[in-house]
């Protein structure tokens, strides 16, 4: 039985659904902190959903629970209508930092999931890794070590690593937050291209409103204390999208609506 979800598209069979998920932390002083109050969300296969909100709104908690890294205090996570408990290879993740293993070459970092998941044949995945490295603009760097790469290039490697195996959902936790604005825009466009090519469902956490609007089909707006979803804003802008969209009045209207929803605390930032 599916409960009605927030505004926006109501998918027939969501690929991923959160049902009444909540998270409460107990502090050392014995107080309970509600990091995430009861939240229900559903994601359609192939959808690109951004989650925005100021720090402390529970967006990373939400993502970590979805990834199976955190156990919710209440509620369930459903993958294709089946409850999941802990990480699954169907749900991949890109972290805020690149999280590469510095003793491994770029290609070996990209192939890490293949080794861990025990996927065969190795030659096929080696080819696939080389293709992904090329696709992410890292051709010629396959045999380099992470410390020889810039921050942006390292994050590209981590994206290639998340794409090498066939997870149907990709969770991204502010993957471009540490990068400069130009690299970030470049990677945003690349991510859209990859998303279209691979047909994955992407949940993208960010605190950058223009980035959220540029990328996504829907924007989940979260507010802090306690962390909760305050609205889900559809983004009916045409695709494929380019940076020219940033100056579009329709884009600006959606962005300012989201800014309004974030409350008076977030003034004219970003």
């Amino acid at each position: 039985m599916r409960r009605p979800v927030e505004a926006g598209t109501a998918p027939a069979v969501p690929i991923l659904a959160l049902r009444d998920v909540s998270k409460t932390y107990r502090t050392v002083r014995g107080e309970n902190i509600v990091a995430l109050s009861q939240t229900s969300l559903a994601f359609e296969a192939g959808e690109f959903v951004a989650i925005v909100g100021p720090s402390g709104c529970g967006k990373t908690t939400l993502l970590n629970i979805t990834a199976g890294l955190l156990r919710p205090s209440g509620g369930t996570i459903l993958f294709r209508n089946a409850a999941i408990d802990g990480p699954t290879p169907e749900v991949g993740m890109v972290f805020q930092g690149p999280v590469l293993l510095p003793w491994r070459k770029v290609i070996e970092n990209v192939l890490l999931p293949i080794e861990v998941l025990g996927l065969r044949p190795a030659s096929r995945y080696r080819q696939r890794a080389a293709d992904l490295i090329g696709m992410l603009g890292l051709a010629g760097f396959a045999e380099r070590y992470p410390r020889e790469l810039s921050g942006g290039m390292q994050q590209r490697v981590s994206i290639a690593r998340a794409l090498i195996y066939d997870s149907s959902v990709l969770l991204m936790d502010e993957p471009f937050a540490a990068l400069d604005a130009m690299t970030r825009e470049e990677l945003n466009l690349e991510l859209l291209r990859i998303w279209k090519m691979t047909g994955r469902t992407i949940l993208f956490v960010t605190h950058n409103i223009p980035e959220a609007v540029l990328l996504s089909d829907r924007v989940v707006v979260m507010t802090p204390r306690p962390g909760k979803v305050s609205a889900v804003v559809p983004v009916p802008l045409p695709r494929p999208r380019s940076l020219a969209l940033l100056g579009d009045p329709a884009f600006g209207a959606i962005a300012s609506r989201i800014r309004g929803l974030l409350g008076p605390r977030s003034g004219p930032a970003a």
């Binding site: 990834a67 199976g68 890294l69 990480p87 749900v91 972290f95 999280v99 293993l101 003793w103 861990v116």
Partner: peptide, 26 residues
């Protein structure tokens, strides 16, 4: 051991031996 690297291995459902050999030991 780097908690982020350990989280990465958890996402991949790595077993203890894999976590040990690929992350903790190096």
């Amino acid at each position: 051991a780097d908690p982020d690297q350990l989280a990465l291995m958890r996402i991949l459902k790595a077993n203890r031996m894999q976590v040990f050999l690929k992350v903790k030991l190096p």
